[in-house]
Amino acid sequence: MEVVDPQQLGMFTEGELMSVGMDTFIHRIDSTEVIYQPRRKRAKLIGKYLMGDLLGEGSYGKVKEVLDSETLCRRAVKILKKKKLRRIPNGEANVKKEIQLLRRLRHKNVIQLVDVLYNEEKQKMYMVMEYCVCGMQEMLDSVPEKRFPVCQAHGYFCQLIDGLEYLHSQGIVHKDIKPGNLLLTTGGTLKISDLGVAEALHPFAADDTCRTSQGSPAFQPPEIANGLDTFSGFKVDIWSAGVTLYNITTGLYPFEGDNIYKLFENIGKGSYAIPGDCGPPLSDLLKGMLEYEPAKRFSIRQIRQHSWFRKKHPPAEAPVPIPPSPDTKDRWRSMTVVPYLEDLHGADEDEDLFDIEDDIIYTQDFTVPGQVPEEEASHNGQRRGLPKAVCMNGTEAAQLSTKSRAEGRAPNPARKACSASSKIRRLSACKQQ
């Protein structure tokens, strides 16, 4: 084909351009004929944790799935940006308080904090938690009735009371019990989460009196709706648990309003109706937990002794299953770290194939690490110290990083047969305790 000078094309009309061969290198194709290559998922490591896909996002930050490269346990990490926390009232204080509380709590029905990582340079905090497959609110939203069968609701409620009793025994008032803060594992274990607005009572406090509340409006008791200066913290949790039980068994809320002012007005009056299909035992329990006067409201001991709580409820309806993943529609909620794991395991070791967030990740503290002497050669063979940054567990980050890069360049065919977990650990520049 004859090559045409581009400067001469402006002298031709459209018809003349076609005659000189423009149609031979300008093609129009339908979008259905285009085959897009999927974007390669680059592996990203935060300390010893391999990052997966997004699980959810809230006002405080994002939650992603991660894999512990040492234990191969599935975890969830809450990623918090200090810049964003400053824009939220009491944001930083709530996060630090939640970390302090979770560090000393150990119960099967309370979410466990596994690790805390802090990135000084990017001003990011990573709260590594045990993995929960789904939230209770997500399960309720997945069915038209917006409720659980009585047998399933009873099982979840009993676990909620177990976890709540443990928190109260530790002198902690949750203040925000609701389905949105109750998570579930694949085995059906309920976990109380989000202790950001919780309050730890003084060890020598005479009672459970509280003065502040930041919980969700629909789950607040009349004493808070009416603006009382002080109130019983434990009875606030009992009320919120009662509203939660009402919601998961009926699909409704005892109090509603077009806006928060109308909602608080209705809560302050204390008038509500219980659907007739709840039955006398459940209705009596709800009335005891939603008692207007805090002094007359049920205690956890009274809830445990109630006939509806103690009764064994046979399954009359099919239980609400864990819904498919909202993004991938995966009904099994498979591990989202698998594509990243395959990338590390299947590809040659190259620095361009993975990302390490930083050479140094500070753990379990908000301060910069200490310094240790770096050896410097002298005339008599002895070495003197220069400062060298280290990880919180004493690992020399720069030395590990250099060693990792040197190993990656060394030709050794046997290394390709290593397991995925050992490869992740070798790529991680800074081991965590």
Score class of each variant (00 low, 15 high):
66 V>D: 01
314 P>W: 14
354 F>N: 14
298 F>G: 00
130 E>G: 02
110 V>N: 03
218 A>K: 09
57 E>Y: 05
100 Q>A: 03
236 V>W: 06
355 D>E: 06
132 C>R: 00
51 M>V: 03
281 P>M: 10
428 S>W: 15
383 R>M: 14
73 C>G: 06
116 V>W: 02
55 L>W: 02
257 G>V: 09
194 D>R: 00
50 L>H: 06
427 L>S: 13
72 L>Y: 06
388 K>N: 13
15 G>N: 15
298 F>E: 00
161 I>E: 00
395 T>A: 04
278 C>S: 08
165 E>Q: 06
184 L>Q: 05
350 D>A: 04
256 E>Q: 12
76 A>Y: 01
86 R>P: 10
220 Q>M: 07
117 L>A: 09
78 K>G: 01
54 L>H: 07
65 E>N: 06
383 R>D: 12
34 V>Y: 06
255 F>S: 07
371 Q>E: 09
139 M>V: 05
327 D>H: 08
277 D>F: 10
3 V>G: 12
193 S>C: 05
51 M>K: 10
272 Y>R: 03
214 Q>F: 06
258 D>G: 12
118 Y>Q: 13
376 E>C: 12
384 R>N: 13
398 A>L: 08
215 G>D: 01
104 R>D: 03
198 A>Y: 06
68 D>V: 02
356 I>H: 13
188 G>M: 00
146 K>E: 07
381 G>P: 15
52 G>A: 05
181 N>W: 00
41 K>G: 09
17 L>R: 08
315 P>E: 14
96 K>R: 08
422 S>A: 12
424 I>A: 14
375 E>I: 14
179 P>F: 01
215 G>H: 05
265 E>Q: 04
137 Q>T: 14
428 S>T: 14
380 N>T: 10
188 G>A: 05
240 S>Q: 04
251 G>S: 06
61 G>H: 11
179 P>V: 02
412 N>Q: 11
56 G>F: 01
91 G>H: 02
405 R>D: 05
325 S>E: 09
222 P>A: 04
305 Q>E: 06
385 G>T: 14
284 D>N: 09
362 Y>P: 14
227 G>C: 05
94 N>M: 02
327 D>S: 14
267 I>S: 08
325 S>N: 12
216 S>I: 01
375 E>Q: 07
161 I>H: 00
185 T>R: 06
253 Y>E: 06
421 S>T: 07
365 D>N: 03
307 S>F: 11
393 N>S: 07
317 E>S: 03
245 L>K: 02
320 V>Y: 13
55 L>V: 03
112 Q>W: 03
341 L>S: 05
270 G>F: 07
137 Q>I: 05
32 T>P: 12
374 E>R: 15
62 K>L: 10
91 G>K: 01
293 E>H: 06
164 L>W: 01
66 V>S: 05
400 L>N: 15
78 K>I: 00
350 D>Y: 12
26 I>M: 15
28 R>S: 14
418 C>L: 12
156 Y>P: 02
289 M>A: 01
408 G>H: 15
356 I>S: 05
311 K>R: 11
137 Q>R: 03
114 V>W: 04
193 S>F: 00
121 E>R: 10
346 G>P: 15
199 E>N: 13
168 H>P: 01
57 E>K: 07
99 I>G: 04
210 C>F: 06
163 G>V: 01
117 L>H: 06
405 R>S: 13
378 S>F: 11
140 L>D: 00
133 V>E: 03
147 R>I: 09
246 Y>M: 09
305 Q>G: 13
269 K>S: 11
151 C>W: 05
141 D>M: 08
134 C>P: 15
73 C>M: 15
147 R>C: 09
136 M>W: 00
132 C>K: 09
206 A>L: 06
338 V>R: 05
171 G>A: 08
35 I>N: 06
242 G>N: 00
208 D>C: 09
205 A>I: 12
340 Y>S: 10
375 E>C: 10
105 L>D: 02
295 A>H: 11
377 A>T: 14
269 K>I: 09
115 D>Y: 01
330 D>E: 04
128 V>H: 03
418 C>G: 15
335 M>S: 13
125 M>V: 04
427 L>N: 15
271 S>Q: 07
343 D>H: 03
153 A>Y: 00
379 H>A: 11
20 V>I: 09
353 L>H: 11
383 R>W: 04
59 S>A: 08
213 S>M: 07
425 R>I: 05
258 D>W: 12
388 K>V: 10
396 E>G: 13
282 L>M: 01
320 V>S: 12
63 V>W: 01
310 R>H: 12
267 I>P: 01
256 E>A: 03
191 K>W: 02
419 S>H: 15
325 S>L: 14
131 Y>A: 03
218 A>D: 01
262 K>S: 06
315 P>A: 06
289 M>Y: 00
117 L>R: 07
285 L>D: 00
384 R>S: 13
269 K>T: 12
38 P>F: 10
144 P>T: 08
255 F>C: 05
50 L>M: 04
180 G>T: 13
49 Y>R: 02
174 H>Y: 07
168 H>A: 09
199 E>F: 11
94 N>F: 03
268 G>R: 12
303 I>Q: 14
79 I>H: 00
107 H>E: 04
362 Y>G: 07
177 I>Y: 01
417 A>P: 08
121 E>G: 08
272 Y>M: 15
273 A>P: 11
142 S>R: 04
410 A>K: 14
361 I>H: 08
271 S>V: 05
53 D>Y: 11
272 Y>V: 03
378 S>V: 06
122 K>P: 15
173 V>Q: 12
74 R>F: 05
234 F>L: 04
383 R>G: 07
352 D>E: 07
185 T>H: 02
38 P>N: 02
289 M>V: 05
134 C>M: 01
64 K>T: 06
374 E>P: 11
245 L>V: 02
147 R>F: 03
137 Q>W: 09
67 L>W: 03
29 I>W: 15
340 Y>I: 02
112 Q>I: 13
118 Y>H: 07
373 P>V: 04
340 Y>N: 06
37 Q>F: 01
251 G>D: 04
172 I>P: 00
282 L>V: 04
371 Q>I: 13
321 P>L: 08
433 Q>R: 05
193 S>E: 13
284 D>C: 02
168 H>S: 04
413 P>A: 12
226 N>R: 13
87 R>V: 07
362 Y>R: 11
126 Y>W: 01
278 C>K: 14
360 I>R: 03
253 Y>F: 03
57 E>F: 04
290 L>W: 03
59 S>T: 10
377 A>R: 15
21 G>R: 08
277 D>R: 10
